[in-house]
Design a binder for these strands. Structure first.
Lengths: 197, 197
DNA sequence: GCTTTTATTGACCAATTAGTCAAGAAAGAA
DNA sequence: TTCTTTCTTGACTAATTGGTCAATAAAAGC
């Protein structure tokens, strides 16, 4: 009989994913050990394996979780918010600047994972590629919307601009890891802004 | 008596560094095992340890080697070549486009290493940061030179522009790992070019 | 030829890895 | 209560990891 009874979980799946995400985000896939995931989540090994499968499966769920809980609200929702599309782009830039300068900034989990796993795990690479596409898409439609409102140079290729912005953000996430310098970040953000003129 | 005699090396150090570089470049530090370095270089373990120290020390030497043999000739020398600075920047863009689209493109070893080790190995992070600075510097002086020649908008902040270009190149190296798409790369390069106008 | 120094070879080791097994604990269904 | 199902705990394992040891080989200096 399916769906019947059994001892209920003693943990909140979302909260566990949050903690696991924090570790993977900071250290990457390989450098994160199961023991570390145990202590970070407070779960025992078998609970982890029972609930999420092996390390790789857990990592996949963490990537999805990251997109839902970090990128969707922090970027996509910001861009798609009603009102001035240009203002939304500016809000995204500001948010990039702030997060990049935060003391505990770990880059972008998607970008980090692409660097680490992009060439050796085609399945995960496919997932990551789709995440990039979703970000590009969000940027693209916002650029278009801003163009329609006369807030961004209408002569620009919206898709090309979106791709340049995505690339800039990913580059910033990398470079800032070793030079957390406010002037540097502002220079890059200014350049991103200039891409809209 | 120091500096006397002993059996001479049976291998060429530069060639060994080339092979080791290829492996580290493709797979990263953690994912590269000593066994793999042995078979890639053709050296036995003790020869490797005797000549280069432990894995981390070898990796450091590989990073230096990468800069000397890849970045210096492929970027710095191109930018510092005599003649039109703007043309040199264009040559760099073309080279980015070509290498990014090559079948065996593995990103930038410096950028990859920053992602993997930037937060956990301060010493290596410092070295990587200096490499970024050298690239920024080369871009910066070339932008300035082009400005002086009237080939690039003289109103631009040369340093800010150099930083944006560096960031763009690093971002491209990441993004292209999962979407090796000619149009995408051209869009990004066009945006980089627009940063000079 | 003998000595000294370094290079090479391959076996070895301790530690860590991801993943599994088996027994016990807890809660809903009957 | 009793049964059934799932969750939890901690010990266990097989494989791989980076790194080392000791013996051998090869060349230069005397």
């Amino acid at each position: 009989m399916p769906g019947v009874a059994g001892r209920p979980r003693g943990f909140d799946e979302q909260e566990v994913l949050n903690r696991a995400m924090a570790v993977f985000w900071q250290k990457g896939f390989d450098a994160t050990g199961i023991a570390e995931l145990e202590s970070a989540t407070g779960l025992g090994r078998q609970s982890l394996y029972g609930a999420f499968g092996d390390k790789r499966a857990l990592f996949s769920k963490v990537v999805e979780h990251y997109f839902e809980r970090v990128v969707e609200p922090g970027l996509v929702a910001v861009l798609d918010a009603p009102g001035s599309a240009r203002a939304n782009l500016e809000r995204a830039f500001t948010s990039w600047e702030e997060t990049a300068l935060a003391r505990d900034f770990n880059g972008c989990l998607v970008g980090n994972s692409v660097s680490e796993l992009g060439l050796r795990d085609p399945e995960i690479a496919g997932v990551l590629q789709r995440k990039f596409q979703l970000m590009e898409e969000a940027l693209c439609r916002t650029v278009r919307r801003a163009q329609a409102a006369g807030e961004v140079n209408a002569k620009l290729d919206a898709r090309a601009t979106a791709r340049a912005l995505l690339t800039t953000a990913q580059g910033l996430a990398v470079v800032v890891r070793v030079s957390r310098d406010r002037a540097f970040v502002q220079n890059v953000i200014s350049a991103a802004r200039r891409l809209l003129d």
